[in-house]
Structure formats: C-alpha cells, structure tokens
C-alpha cells in the first residue's frame, strides 16, 4: 500500500518539476537576455546565462523617452489601474449594499435583469463604446480605461452574495437604535465585507493592468498609452530583433509591478479565484 503511494508520489514530483521548469525558463530567458549585448545574442546563440552581464540595454530603454517612454507607460498604467481599483471598491460596496440590504420594490428583479444583460457578449458593444468614450472626450486619456469598467456586474454579484452571509441582526438592531442606512453601511457592513472588497479590487487591478484589446483601440498618443499598448509598438521600434536586449528589458520592466503585487498579496489571489468560482477554499 505504502509502496504504491511512493511510486505515484515520485511520478507526481517528476511531472510537477518538469512543468515548473517549462514554466519558468521563458521568464528566466527573458530576464537574462535583457542583460546581454546584441552581439552576444547573435554570436553565442542560446544561453540561459549571459557571458557578460551588462546594463546598457536598461540605460538605453530609460533614455528613450520619445518613441518608447517605458517609465511613462508604466506610470500611466499605475495611475489607470490604481484609480480604477479604488473606484471599483467604492461602486461595488455601495451598490452591493443597495441590492442586498435596502428594501424597495422590484429590487431583485432589477438586479437579475442587469445581471442578465451583462452576459451579452461584449464584442458587440465595443465599437459603440468607443464612440461614447470619444463623445465624452476621453480618447487618449486615462478615463477611457478607468470608467467604463465600473459598470460591470460580476463584482457586485460577489459582494451581494457575500453580504447575504453577514447576519442581518447586526444592522437591524442598529436600525432599532435609530441608525440610518448611511451609518449602518459605513459603521457595520463595510468593515465586515472587507475580504470580498479586496478580492474585487485585486481582480480589477490585474484586469485593467493587463487589458490589451481596449487600450490598443483607444490610445494612439504614444505618451498617453498604458504599458500593454506600448509594448505592441516595440517590435517595430526596436527594429525587428535588431535590439533584442532592449526588447526583453522593456518586457521585464512591464512585468515587475504585477509580480510584486502577487508576492505581497498571494493568499488573497487564491481565495479570490475560488470565491469567483463559488468554491470555499
């Protein structure tokens, strides 16, 4: 019995280690290549580690602030993602409270109608959405990426579900004591739903940081675009692999912010994904 478990244990380890190697090698390759000179990349062929570590590529990347201002792009992305995330948390908490705690006629019908409409494939609304954003004067501004995503229903659904688990006795006794909805919301409910707000916030941050199709459509100004759209331009700017190190260095710089977020908030990510899929972790 034990022996059988041991064989399968080693098989599982072998498999997992192989998969993990395949998974990390591209990242390491991108990272180390960003420290190699073009001459070395061309002449030495594939090496996981550089012969000579150089930082020239990064110096060149940072100096190019006109056609590929990578720091500016990352700054744009940070502003967009942080602002979007904060607004998402505000919107989903007050709206979630409204749909789970306020009593008014047709509340659940309204909620599920909106939820149903939101399942409509978003490929259909993307062209008119561009027109609306254009009318609002938001093309080539951060608001094009910050505001439209606030209309989504997914996170509000999560908050509503989560609030159902918060005992109603708490707010009812406060209500008896004469507390208004605003007091109940800020003093009682908000502190209790913090976990689900962190989940909604994390997903919103990663989602807007990594969004690709929409920024490619709404940003044409090189100085205003977020980093995902900027990187699309790089293959041309750094001359179709004439400047491999700079290409890799830019990709690595773009990866760092979300990677740091993951390292600090790892446990929230796992519970976030499972909460989204309706699984108790």
């Amino acid at each position: 019995m034990n022996k059988k478990y041991n064989i399968s244990k080693y098989l599982a380890y072998l498999f997992l280690i192989t998969v993990c190697l395949i998974w990390v090698v591209p990242m390491i390759f991108g990272f180390t290549t960003s420290f190699r000179s073009q001459g070395e990349v061309v002449n030495e062929g594939f090496r996981l580690l550089p012969v000579n570590w150089i930082v020239d590529n990064y110096m060149a990347i940072l100096e190019n602030t006109s056609s590929a201002p990578i720091l500016r792009w990352i700054g744009n992305s940070l502003f967009i993602s942080i602002t979007h995330t904060l607004l998402v948390v505000v919107v989903i908490s007050i709206t979630g409270y409204g749909y789970s705690r306020m009593r008014f006629k047709g509340r659940d019908v309204l909620f599920f109608t909106l939820l149903g409409i939101s399942f409509f494939p978003n490929v259909v609304n993307i062209i008119p959405l561009y027109r609306i954003v254009d009318i609002l004067g938001w093309v080539n501004t951060p608001w094009a990426m910050i505001v439209p995503g606030l209309a989504g229903m997914g996170n509000i659904f999560l908050v509503r579900q989560f609030m159902k688990g918060v005992p109603k006795e708490l707010d009812e006794s406060a209500r008896v004591d004469g507390a208004s909805d605003f007091t109940i919301f800020f003093r009682i409910v908000l502190p209790l739903i913090k976990p689900v707000l962190i989940v909604g916030g994390l997903f919103s941050f990663i989602g807007s940081w990594n969004d690709f199709l929409w920024p490619v459509i709404v940003y044409t100004d090189v100085q205003k675009m977020p980093v995902t759209a900027g990187l699309l331009l790089l293959q041309d700017i750094y001359g179709n692999y004439q400047m491999v190190g700079q290409l890799m260095g830019s990709a690595i710089l773009a990866i760092i912010p979300t990677l740091l977020l993951f390292l600090f908030a790892q446990k929230y990510f796992v519970s976030a994904i499972n909460l989204n899929a309706g699984i108790k972790g």
């Binding site: 991108g30 940081w209 995902t228 890799m248 773009a254």
Partner: peptide, 28 residues
C-alpha cells in the same frame, strides 16, 4: 505559484518573450 505567475504577465510582454524564443535565428 510558479504555474500561476505567467497569468499576471500581460499578453504583450509575454508575446515579446515568446516571439524571441521562437525567433528562427536568435531563438531558444
């Protein structure tokens, strides 16, 4: 974590790295 981390990398950053890996002359 190792398997999950590439999901945090944007498509454009990942594509730059993978394009180099599959580049016919310089690629890994």
């Amino acid at each position: 974590s190792i398997i999950y981390i590439p999901g945090l990398i944007s498509i454009s950053a990942a594509a730059l790295i993978w394009s180099l890996i599959f580049n016919s002359q310089l690629g890994m």
